[in-house]
Amino acid sequence: MTPAQPSPDHDTHHETDGAVARDRDPGRHGPWAAPLPDKDEPARPPTRHWFGEIAQAVLVALPVLVLTGTALGLLWLWRAPRLPLVSDGEQVLLVSSEGEQVVGADGTFLLYGLAVGAVAGLVVFLLRRTGGVAVVVGLAAGSLLGSLLAWGIGTWFGPTDDIRAHARAVGPDVVFDGPLELTARGVLMGLPLAALGVHLACMALWGPRDPAPQPPVPVPSWGVPDRQPGAPAGDAAPGHDIPGRNGDPPRG
């Protein structure tokens, strides 16, 4: 006896139910979809090359520290106005009580710091145009330390801060220069702010650009076509009735 063969309508009914079941299962993918990740494989943390980033920042900071600190210190020592003092044999007095040499020393440090910082930011951009965060961190740290080094150069190599000893050495009624000092410590930020500002401006104007993001490629998947959003997964979209469902006779 020949076994009964399933009717074509019966096969169509099961194929349609399988498509709906696949559409219900969010874990199933289409034939061209990417494979699912292996659940047994542990997730690998992203590798970060901290050593290379730190080395790059140090390679930027050290030259900036030495060059900007030396240049600014020598310029300040050369161009800053001196504070004239005089001794009457008992005490040290200002030659002019209305002198602006102290404010002039602060302003000179600030102006030359801005100029040296702008040059430093431009040079770092030209030499490290493709650098990232490490270059900016190295530039900021090096320029800030360079500003402190310039302050130290001016005070170390300038007139001595031992005013009484200097007055006894030159004698009474002889004008001599007072020590070179900064009264407004905020001018120390002129060098790093100018360096970072020029570097960031150059990066914004002439730095490398990231490629434009590509639109996502649609991945085909099996399922009931033209299913409206929000409709139940088991119901067919209007105009696509499934034969054999809802009591409708199959269309032969």
Rank of each mutant, 00 (worst) to 15 (best):
L94I: 00
V174D: 03
L94R: 10
D248S: 12
G247P: 04
E41D: 10
W76R: 07
A204D: 08
P172F: 06
P6L: 13
G27V: 02
A150K: 03
E100A: 12
L127C: 09
D161N: 12
P63V: 01
R185L: 14
R24D: 12
G131K: 02
P192I: 03
N246Q: 14
V136S: 06
P42R: 09
L67Q: 01
W76C: 04
T47R: 13
D177G: 05
V219Y: 05
S147W: 03
I54A: 11
G197A: 13
R168V: 01
V66W: 02
L145C: 10
W78C: 02
P225N: 08
L188T: 08
V137I: 14
L75H: 03
G252S: 10
H199T: 02
W32Q: 15
L110P: 00
L36Q: 13
P84R: 08
L148Y: 11
G171K: 10
A150Q: 02
T47C: 06
P216S: 13
L122A: 15
G121Q: 02
G104W: 01
V123K: 06
G104C: 07
D106L: 07
A33F: 08
G142F: 00
V92G: 01
A61G: 09
G132Q: 10
P45G: 06
P215A: 15
A140Y: 00
V124F: 00
V224C: 09
W156L: 13
G121M: 03
S143T: 03
G27D: 11
G207M: 04
G152Y: 09
D210H: 14
A204N: 10
W222G: 04
P229L: 09
A134Q: 09
V170N: 07
R227G: 11
H240F: 11
G247E: 07
P220C: 06
Q91K: 11
V95K: 09
A33E: 12
G132P: 03
V136G: 01
G104N: 04
T47H: 11
P8S: 11
V103R: 13
V170F: 05
H49G: 05
L59S: 11
T68N: 01
L59Q: 11
W222D: 10
V86W: 00
R82V: 04
P208F: 11
L145F: 13
T160P: 00
D88N: 15
L85T: 01
